[in-house]
Design a protein around this nucleic acid. Structure first.
Lengths: 194, 194
DNA sequence: CTTTTTGATGAGTATTCAGTCACCGAGTTT
DNA sequence: AAACTCGGTGACTGAATACTCATCAAAAAG
């Protein structure tokens, strides 16, 4: 790879990094291509040399992020021994990239089909693990006989609600951190016999 | 009131009605002032004769809607004898104006301070009634000793999650109708002793 | 050393919208 | 009936913003 190609690669990576931080800061919908170019210190037109359009940029960023999240989730599942640990580790994962998850939760209904599908697919994977874990618990009589699907949606609905209204729930810091224990507590009280 | 003033009143009411149906159809953010004017059969400029700007229009529409909803809620509370009935009636209320609630759930994070405050204030009123009802149930030993605040947020978070992703959860018809029974069932299993 | 290639530039284009304003004509007043 | 008022009109403006393209200069190729 010669000097030119090397520089191009570097610019591209730089753009991806800056774009992600801008998206996380203001959301995908409210970040303009000019803002990204300015923040990256390159000309506006250069952005379109590296990415077909704004959508292609966000898709590439999300693909990378979702892939990394999937890796973390796989590790998590391998390690977690029960639902409480799984939930705690999942919440920790969310907390680490909370700004990004908050943006996705808030903007999901406005994304195009492709993006929505990718995000919801990632969601469905982790959801299915919770589903399985709860079913197992019921079979082993550790949990009460709840409606598993509804229970899982209650959990994810609540987490997404917290995330999408993050800035309203708290001034700064992590919503997940703030509500982690009460989420776990309520899930336990839903599942464990009295 | 003379002929002119009468006509003005009529145009204004007509605009409010058409604007609401457009907002419900495509959301507030994705409805243009031209679309509303076209649908109402008036000139684009006329809209700004009746309302200072697009925001003033949505604020007036929401004020009317929220006021009516408040009236319904007051009636509901007067009649409801227990949590299950209260919840069922609340879900019925949501179902009646589901498109509007779905738009609000989806777009809330993007509204300005004033609109957000109004919507969240209405939410907090109904939430406080659930809170009180659950506390009472715990005191009277009908319910288990759950964390009341978390339980209420679980309920509202889940409902909002369903609403904001309405179009993803179902093709057409009512999400609330579809999930009503499982929401109630899960709430009961959360609150009632095993 | 000359020619060709190509990454980068940024002024310019196209589009979408909210909001304005000079003007019209029906209705009201004098 | 003349003068005035005011609701309505729609072409126009200005702002925002995604995307293009003629041009440049440095690097690569011949």
């Amino acid at each position: 790879m010669n000097k030119r190609q090397l520089q191009k690669q570097k610019t591209r990576q730089h753009l991806l990094r800056i774009a992600k931080s801008e998206f996380v800061k203001n959301g995908f919908l409210n970040t303009t291509t000019s803002e990204i170019a300015d923040a990256a210190g390159i000309a506006h037109g250069t952005l379109f040399l590296h990415f077909k359009n704004k959508d292609a940029l966000i898709v590439e960023i999300l693909d990378r992020e979702l892939e990394e999240i999937n890796r973390s989730i796989q590790q998590m599942i391998a390690k977690a021994v029960d639902l409480e640990q799984l939930l705690l580790q999942y919440l920790n994962l969310l907390q680490e990239e909370e700004e990004l998850f908050a943006v996705m939760a808030r903007e999901l209904p406005f994304y195009n089909e492709e993006l929505r599908r990718k995000i919801l697919f990632r969601d469905s994977i982790i959801r299915s693990h919770f589903h399985r874990e709860i079913e197992l618990g019921i079979k082993e009589k550790r949990y009460r006989e709840v409606d598993v699907t509804s229970t899982v949606i209650f959990l994810f609905g609540t987490i997404n609600y917290y995330l999408s209204l993050k800035s309203i729930f708290i001034k700064e810091g992590s919503v997940i951190k703030k509500f982690k224990t009460s989420i776990i507590k309520t899930m336990k009280s839903l599942l464990l016999p009295a």
